[in-house]
Design a protein around this nucleic acid. Structure first.
Length: 574
DNA sequence: GCCGTTTTCGGCCCGACTGTTTTCAGTCG
């Protein structure tokens, strides 16, 4: 059974191949919009089972049938027919910067070029010299595009991209006069990974800002270099786009470049129905010819009859409707967090001493936190029951010294059968317990579902750590019946973690949004293995916001006595 | 192919930059 990411990828393949095959624009675009909807949706298998698939925006009868076929069989007749017409390597051709579907179609149909290798050979042999719209500059750009294609790796994880973006902003700030500057695009929306970095700023002298930008010594190549827009590639192939406009347009500019694409399409389609044309240059009233310009982003949404939509919600999956109805949730913020339930010390596999972690938690201003080193079956990194209990007086002393409440905890392994890795007597002496799956991750969907539900039913398990086990860009995690586990978590009073390690960010936002409907309580934790790792809570907050979560749904924004009551309630129900 | 507070047909977001063009097509976000 295919997961959402795979289904979305196949829908995008259908979209691309349809365009190559000359299908009408709005027909193949429908598949792209459907792919976006699937990316942001709850698990498709679950939606099919509950008859909710066609409720997704942009998914009608025909595409729903295609999705059902894909989900079930892994492929579909539509895609098989398209595969028969084009070689699989056509997608690599299209991922060369500068080659779009029009060019690829001509290359394939008129020159028999169906792969990057073919393309390179044709250019070197001079076979493309007379091709339409293929002058010397275009051929140079394609050569450069091929090099970049070969040198490129994955999408960039959010945390790494944020560091580079901040460096770029620092570089510009210190060298050229700016008014306001901000991250935009997928980075500002806190997407898990980003394909490029978007930055917007305002200045009275846009051209000199752009010139400064493209002259940066870290730029390996300059792709665009206009009066208001510049694009560069860094050494590792990461692309940075910068757009500069006058300060009075900052609101329009930021809104435009924060996207997402689908959010903007929906927003502008709605605006057109009101006689308005929305772009980064303002909001044009078609009837009067007057342009409304907005200094701030909330003004843009206000002009369009909506409350402000936080960037993390801008995925085109229902946020515009809610904003019109003024029913958006008050999203959790970093400042709401009172503590962090998941961190490690050198007692298990952490890199900082117990005291360093406790001091660091205190210096972040937390009221409480817990130390959750690994449990015994993790081998040399795990703590025996005796070791675990011997932490308690040490923690009490350090906790007092650093004026913070440190809860004694453990990240206990959830064993293959769903039991926990310490006995009840040991667990009963902890203040709060995190349980995670670290072994037997290839169990069947049914086994994993039973395992997690049994864990939820354990009266001592309070939080399921990184619930899906996914590793970004590496593994989608283990399979289980999400709805069944969410229901069990809600029923038993077991919180689900949003783990803030850059490589995890787990639960994924779309699943957390689904779980919210079951009445689940969440935690936003760092899962830090060193002092610096505590910053991961900010990443977890980004994902929680993308899941539409509010403070009241997140355990570690609650006062300590309510956290203790949450733990106690579960222990009493036996 | 999808969709509806101009509804079941006729629409469907918007603009910058580039290179090859004498007015624009293609790509990108």
């Amino acid at each position: 059974m295919l997961g959402n990411a795979d289904i979305a990828r196949k829908l995008n393949e259908i979209r691309t191949l349809m365009e190559l095959a000359g299908e009408p624009f709005y027909k193949f675009m429908a598949y792209e919009r459907a792919a976006t909807a699937v990316e942001n949706a709850a698990p498709v298998s679950q939606l099919i089972a509950s008859g909710e698939l066609q409720k997704l925006p942009g998914i009608g009868k025909s595409i729903a049938a295609t999705i059902a076929e894909l989900c079930d069989a892994g492929s579909c007749s539509l895609l098989s027919d398209l595969y028969a017409r084009f070689p699989p390597t056509i997608f690599e051709l299209l991922s060369v910067s500068g080659i779009g579907t029009k060019t690829a179609a001509i290359l394939f149909e008129q020159y028999g070029i169906g792969s990057v290798e073919d393309l390179e050979a044709a250019i070197e042999a001079g076979n493309l010299a007379g091709a339409p719209r293929m002058g010397p500059k275009t051929l140079d750009n394609i050569r450069r595009g091929i090099l970049a294609y070969r040198g490129r790796t994955h999408r960039t994880p959010l945390a790494a991209a944020r560091v580079i973006a901040e460096e770029t902003i620092d570089y510009l700030r210190t060298r050229v006069p700016l008014d306001r500057i901000s991250l935009a695009g997928s980075l500002r929306r806190a997407e898990t990974t980003v394909g490029d970095i978007d930055i917007v700023c305002t200045s009275v002298d846009a051209p000199s800002v752009i010139q400064t930008f493209v002259a940066w010594d870290r730029a390996r190549a300059v792709l665009a270099d206009g009066p208001t827009k510049g694009t560069i590639w860094l050494d590792d192939g990461l692309q940075i786009d910068l757009r500069v406009l006058p300060d009075e347009l900052y609101g329009n500019l930021l809104q435009h470049f924060t996207g997402s694409r689908e959010h903007n399409i929906q927003l502008r389609e709605d605006a057109v129905r009101k006689g308005l044309r929305v772009s980064e240059n303002g909001i044009l009233e078609l009837e009067t010819g007057r342009t409304i310009i907005c200094r701030t982003e909330p003004e843009v949404y206000e002009v369009l009859g909506m409350e402000y939509i936080p960037p993390e919600l801008r995925s085109g999956s229902g946020e515009l409707e809610a904003a019109r109805a003024r029913t958006l949730p008050q999203l959790i913020e970093l400042s709401d967090v009172r503590g962090d339930f998941h961190m490690h010390s050198t007692w298990s596999d952490g890199r900082n001493e117990l005291e360093e972690m406790i001091a660091a938690a205190a210096s972040r201003g937390y009221e409480y936190h817990s130390m959750s080193d690994h449990s015994q079956s993790r081998g040399w990194i795990g703590l025996s029951p005796d070791d675990l209990l011997s932490q308690r007086p040490i923690i009490a002393q350090l906790s007092k010294k650093h004026s913070i409440t440190t809860l004694c905890s453990s990240e206990v392994d959830i064993r293959a059968d769903g039991s926990l890795d310490y006995d009840d007597e040991t667990l009963a002496q902890l203040d709060i317990v995190v349980g995670s799956v670290h072994s037997a991750m290839r169990q069947s969907r049914d086994e994993m579902t039973r395992r997690l539900i049994r864990a939820c039913e354990n009266p001592y398990l309070n939080i399921i750590g990184h619930p899906t086990g996914r590793m970004i860009e590496i593994s989608p995690g283990y399979e289980f019946d999400y709805d069944a586990v969410f229901a069990a978590a809600a029923r038993t009073g077991t919180a689900l973690e949003i783990d803030g390690q850059g490589k995890r960010l787990d639960l994924p936002a779309a699943l957390a949004r689904r779980a919210k409907d079951f009445g689940v309580v969440f935690t936003v934790d760092s899962d830090a293995h060193d002092v610096k790792g505590l910053e991961g809570v900010a990443l977890a907050i980004g994902q929680a916001r993308r899941a539409w979560l509010t403070r009241k749904e997140i355990l570690n924004t609650w006062p300590l006595e309510e956290v203790r009551a949450f733990v106690q309630r579960k222990r009493e129900v036996r």
